[in-house]
Design a protein around this nucleic acid. Structure first.
Length: 862
RNA sequence: GGGCGGAUAGCUCAGUUGGGAGAGCGCUGCCCUUACAAGGCAGAGGUCACAGGUUCGAUCCCUGUUCCGCCUACCA
């Protein structure tokens, strides 16, 4: 797109860059440290971050060099990184403004927590995977009548220790009388209430009674809010059973659960329940397991104070921008996907408990927040009372939900409230996507009003994969509208994802990754680019197979060889107007080229790269090479040919126009060949993109060519049927019985003669020899090829018979339709006429074929 | 659970106002013809997933079924 638009004369910018991939990068560097026997804690925050910068300096630009090798036409001087000073300034500015607008808040909520990365995740950073789980039915006896029990069903029995209520549906005749009573929670000494909740409880599922664990389940969290239930956290940040939490839950200490991992705790709890007769049954149950998108660890809903973006006010205009068509999503099938997600969007958790990223610009006065800042040198359970929410030691302090932050662009020196000078910064960093969301304007200098910003915002097109439509695209739209007052781009082109030849997603662990660098080395960059473009049909993933790339490598090779041929006949002058070439091949190829220009441009505008490449391939290989070059060889080989000079000019000009047309797809070979043509050092990318010319359109030349091609085809077929060796010349009889096309045939004859192919005189078919001529027909053209020497005509006879059978079949079909009263009375007249014409042509063909068959049989002596 | 996409030649895929089914690769035969054997020429190969419906007529429009893939979701 970039090369094409630049050639079209647009002011084009492709600004390259990378994000800092917070969690992923931190994971990589931590792994390195582990191998060295160190850890980020042992290094401390500052030295750790230095270390990450080091890593970034050495391997962070791999993708950039890959992009360069792919021939991506970026403005490399403008390379940006989300952690650059300028972009970081934009991040700060956006954070503060959103906070001041009340769109960023801090709150203690249930969030998705990765117990391995030890950080919060946003909803979309959780991948769901279907697994076979179990549904455990547990009996909770009524407090005032232990003979009666309420049976609840759960997939996570170990969380029962944190239950603070049981819900039933208020309309459920089985249970509604129990609402307000209490049950005894097995394995604990607690009694918990039975509440009525029509939102949480589905009458038709499970037992109709649901345990409520507000600290460990999103639904239960909300149900807990509705019924003002206490929340008991019984897991640590590492997804182990938490001692303090268990104590609060009054769990049976003999179970010895403290610091047991969740899986182990489940076994212990289930065993204990079974032993005590509380487990009714276990059923198989299909369920979705949430996993961390960076490390695939099972995520836990975890209660902790985090920063959130209040998203609805940002989402509403972002929905409108797409609804009104101000932003187009291509292919538009994804539009509903986008709208559906945006309409149901939840607040965005933007804080991450890692070090690599933009640290949140919030500080806490130790004096004002005396009771809300906790030294975390010792393990403290994450409970309502004790507060600290993750025991992980990132700093020596954690801040409870009640702590009052001071949000500021620069580090404050004193507390605006009490004047205290002892301030501690929030240790959390921002979600990487928070900074990526600002990319369209932060990279252009915002918040400064730079000329670049003015020129290039809003941008034209965003090209991206579906997998980051929500992560990135939606958020860029929201932030762009909020801070620039306009959409960040007009078109969003969702490209296909590349899979392996079997359609599997590529992954290192599966070992099915196709390395683009390796492919480029083997087949050439142009072949890879052309392959990807040719397979980019909308809404379909690409199954990349080597054979396909090889095929387009051959195409590149074909272009190279055709250029060599052209080079042998160079005119030695710069591109000129080839209008003096009025020969049939010249008129024809120019008309075909013109059509190709039209198609390629149209398809590029429609983001149909597949159809654009097909048009280029078809034109160059099957028209320019297969026919045009062969057609003009006699002219080129005759030094005295009157059309020689004009033909050479057309040969060269057509190649030059084609190279420009091809350049966006195959930049390297087009440039390379361009340089071998007489251009005096100009590069092809500075040339203009071809524009179709109405006066190049030559319908009569195209019609002549059609007849010509078919005639040649007949002769070639005859040669094969008769086993004629390549060197043997054949005598050809040609005729045409239709007066309407006789004129075209005359043109054809003249051109054949003109090309130095010898004379072809039409002879009325009645005057053809009755034997030793093999007659063949196609599309109303009849040709005869003389049969010379001792040849086997059996093959020819087989073919004739087959053709007759096909003709009969088709005639029968058409005849049937035309004999149907319904068809004749209801089908459009032009369709009926068309059918009649075809039927007439078929019967004429059949007559010709049968008479040929008779002659052939006569020759065979049948 | 909801939504979306796909099923067309051996393989990978095109195919829009519904009316004669295409390409590339692979396969078969012939050919090293002075651009190209990574090539040329000529061929073979398809009940357009299945079952209904609409229509004079369906690969195409509608309904259902099966299989595959993706997105999404808090069914304990």
């Amino acid at each position: 797109l970039i090369r094409w638009r630049r050639m079209q004369g647009r002011n084009v910018l492709w600004l390259p860059g990378t994000d800092h991939a917070g969690i992923a990068t931190q994971n990589v560097v931590e792994k390195q440290l582990l191998a060295e026997g160190a850890s980020r804690e042992s290094l401390g925050r500052e030295r750790f971050i230095e270390r990450v910068w080091q890593w970034k300096a050495t391997s962070g630009n791999t993708i950039i060099s890959q992009q360069k090798q792919l021939g991506e036409s970026c403005d490399w001087d403008r390379l940006r990184f989300t952690m650059d000073e300028g972009l970081s300034k934009a991040v700060l500015e956006v954070f503060v403004r959103l906070y001041e607008d009340g769109l960023i808040y801090r709150g203690k909520r249930l969030i998705n927590w990765c117990p391995r990365c030890l950080t919060a995740l946003s909803d979309i950073e959780v991948e769901h995977e279907d697994v076979k789980g179990k549904l455990y039915h547990i009996r909770y006896p009524l407090a005032d009548d232990p003979q009666i029990a309420l049976t609840v069903a759960t997939t996570r029995p170990e969380t029962m220790l944190g239950d603070t209520a049981v819900a039933v549906h208020p309309d459920d005749p089985r249970y509604r009388h129990l609402i307000g009573k209490k049950v005894r929670l097995p394995l604990t000494t607690r009694e918990i209430p039975i509440v009525g909740d029509s939102i949480l409880v589905d009458l038709t599922f499970g037992t109709g009674a649901v345990k409520i664990t507000p600290a460990h389940d999103f639904n239960d969290f909300e149900a807990g809010e509705r019924h003002k239930l206490p929340r008991i956290s019984i897991f640590t940040a590492r997804a182990e059973m938490d001692g303090a939490g268990l104590h609060e839950a009054q769990a049976d200490p003999s179970l010895n659960l403290a610091l047991k991992p969740v899986q182990k705790a489940r076994t212990i709890v289930v065993d204990a329940l079974t032993e005590r007769g509380s487990l009714e049954k276990i059923e198989d149950h299909k369920m979705a397991l949430g996993k961390c998108y960076r490390c695939k660890t099972v995520v836990e809903p975890y209660l902790s104070p985090q920063w959130f973006v209040k998203i609805k006010p940002l989402a509403i205009p972002a929905i409108e921008a797409v609804e009104t068509g101000k932003i187009r999503i291509i292919p538009d099938g994804w539009t509903n996907n986008y709208l559906g997600w945006m309409r149901d969007i939840k607040d965005w958790c933007i804080s991450r408990q890692i070090w690599w990223g933009h640290q949140i610009p919030a500080w806490y006065c130790t004096k004002c927040n005396h009771d809300h800042i906790l030294k975390t040198g010792h393990s403290v359970g994450a409970t309502e009372e004790s507060g600290p929410l993750h025991e992980v030691q990132q700093l020596n302090y954690t801040f409870t939900q009640e702590a009052q932050p001071i949000v500021s662009r620069t580090a404050p020196t004193r507390c605006p409230n009490c004047g205290g000078q002892d301030l501690l910064r929030d240790p959390d960093v921002l979600d990487t996507w928070f900074s990526s969301a600002l990319w369209p304007f932060s990279t252009l200098g915002w918040p400064e009003q730079t000329p670049e910003l003015k020129t290039y915002y809003p941008t034209s097109t965003l090209v991206t994969g579906l997998d980051i439509l929500f992560f990135w695209v939606a958020r860029m739209i929201m932030m762009g509208l909020k801070f620039m007052g306009d959409v960040p781009f007009r078109d969003v082109y969702i490209h296909a994802l590349v899979r392996d030849a079997e359609g599997q997603k590529m992954s290192k662990s599966k070992g099915n990754v196709i390395d683009p660098l390796h492919v480029m080395e083997q087949f050439g960059t142009d072949a890879l680019r052309f392959t990807l473009a040719s397979m980019a049909s909308p809404g379909r993933d690409i199954k990349l197979a080597e054979e396909r790339i090889e095929g387009y490598r051959n195409f590149a090779n074909k272009i190279w060889n055709a250029a060599r041929f052209t080079h042998m006949h160079l005119t030695g002058t710069k591109e000129s107007q080839p209008l003096d070439d009025r020969s049939f091949p010249g008129l024809w190829i120019r008309s075909r080229l013109n059509d190709t220009i039209k198609i390629v441009t149209m398809e590029l505008e429609a983001y149909r790269f597949d159809r654009a490449t097909n048009a280029l391939y078809q034109f160059f290989w099957h028209e320019y090479c297969d026919w045009y070059l062969e057609l003009i060889k006699p002219i080129l080989q005759d030094p005295l040919h009157p059309e020689g000079s004009a033909t050479r000019q057309t040969l060269q000009d057509t190649l030059e126009v084609f190279l420009r047309l091809l350049h966006p797809f195959m930049p390297f070979i087009s440039e390379e060949i361009w340089q071998t043509l007489p251009h005096k050092g100009e590069t092809i990318v500075t040339q203009s993109y071809p524009v179709h010319q109405t006066h190049w359109h030559e319908p009569s030349a195209e019609e002549t060519f059609r007849l010509f091609e078919q005639s040649i085809g007949l002769i070639r077929t005859a040669r094969v049927l008769l086993n004629y060796p390549p060197g043997q010349e054949v005598r050809v009889f040609v005729t045409h019985e239709e007066p309407a096309t006789r004129a075209t045939l005359v043109t054809l004859e003249r051109n054949l003669a003109h090309l130095g192919r010898g004379q072809i005189s039409p002879v009325p078919i009645s005057q053809w020899p009755t034997s030793n001529v093999l007659r063949l027909i196609t599309d109303g053209i009849t040709m005869g090829v003389s049969v010379e020497g001792d040849v086997d005509l059996k093959k020819a006879l087989d073919r004739l018979e087959k053709q007759i059978a096909e003709t009969d079949k088709e005639s029968l079909r058409l005849d049937g339709k035309l004999n149907s009263a319904d068809f004749v009375s209801k089908a459009p007249p032009e369709v009926i006429t068309d059918h009649r014409d075809r039927l007439r042509a078929l019967s004429r063909d059949r007559a010709m074929l049968t008479s040929s068959e008779q002659q052939l049989r006569a020759m065979l002596g049948d």
